[in-house]
């Protein structure tokens, strides 16, 4: 069952990455682009988890955790910049 579920799931997550990327390019406003980046990193975590199951390796967990941490900090920093015009005061 997993053999055919995994390719379908990969296709769906890849389509999700494509749609988020389209929003990143299209805009139209800055928060839209930040939201698209935020979605891209969550989708990247999804893709990494799927890859871990596909390759039967737990190594990708650390990468997913790091992307989650860095993505969150990045989103907050961008929003803070939009709100205050500065990140570190």
């Amino acid at each position: 069952m997993l053999e055919w579920v995994l390719p379908v799931a990969f296709a769906l997550v890849a389509a999700a990455l494509g749609l988020s990327f389209w929003r990143l390019i299209r805009g139209p406003s800055l928060p839209d682009r930040i939201l698209a980046l935020d979605t891209l990193y969550v989708n990247a975590i999804a893709a990494l988890v799927l890859l871990g199951i596909q390759l039967d390796s737990a190594l990708y967990f650390e990468a997913a955790l790091l992307i989650a941490l860095m993505g969150f900090v990045g989103t907050v920093a961008f929003c803070k910049y939009l709100l205050r015009g500065d990140i570190i005061e």
Partner: peptide
Amino acid sequence: TFIGSLGLA
């Protein structure tokens, strides 16, 4: 996940 990104687009 796909539906979430679809909403974004």
